[in-house]
Simulated scan of single mutants.
Amino acid sequence: MSNAARPLILASPDATAALARRFGTALRAGDTLLLQGDIGAGKSYFARALIQSLQDIPEDVPSPTFTLVQTYDTRLGELWHADLYRLGDPGEVEELGLTEALTSAICLIEWPDRLGTLTPSAAAVLTFNILEREEHRSITLTGQNCDLMRRLSKAMT
């Protein structure tokens, strides 16, 4: 069962960070968020705010563009932040250890189209779009996992 897409308009980076913090309160080990959208749409900014909200002492959260994966210890357990933009083949995902992390850690995955057939069906998809006013973003939440979608939808309100 797929939940209908419902775009949320965020008028500032602060609003994006606030939504990320609310999503952080809804996540559990084994949850996966697939973050898709153009370069500069706010995926890494959102991920950074979410990760920092789950840390006892917020630390620097660099984009994993060049390292591909960064892991963090959080109050909810291990969190993996992956940026798959530079992957050439979905088979490389297994070399990163990401397939195992999908079952036990919270995973935030940018450029999920690079996963190919390894895309987890239980993931929630956040689609980021830049709106006419450059600081405004539209975020649409879709997915198949009823429990995760229910938790995230509640956090959106």
Score class of each variant (00 low, 15 high):
C107P: 02
R75I: 15
G143P: 02
F46S: 04
H136V: 06
M1E: 14
R114D: 08
N129F: 12
R75P: 09
P62S: 06
L98Y: 10
A82I: 01
S53D: 09
E100V: 03
T140F: 03
G77R: 00
A11D: 03
G88N: 13
E132P: 01
L118S: 13
R114P: 00
G116A: 10
Q70C: 06
E95W: 07
A26V: 15
G24S: 09
Q52L: 15
A155L: 06
F128Q: 05
Y45K: 08
L141V: 07
D113F: 04
T74V: 15
R48L: 05
Q52G: 15
P64Y: 07
G88M: 11
S2I: 14
N3I: 15
C107S: 13
C146W: 00
I39Q: 08
P58E: 11
R6Q: 11
S121D: 11
N3Q: 14
L8R: 09
L141Y: 09
T99F: 03
I39F: 10
G91D: 13
T99R: 13
D83F: 07
L79P: 01
D14H: 10
L98S: 07
E110G: 09
E92V: 00
D73C: 13
D31N: 12
I9R: 07
P58S: 13
T119G: 02
L118G: 09
Q55E: 14
A11C: 00
A15T: 13
M156C: 15
G30H: 06
T65N: 08
D73F: 05
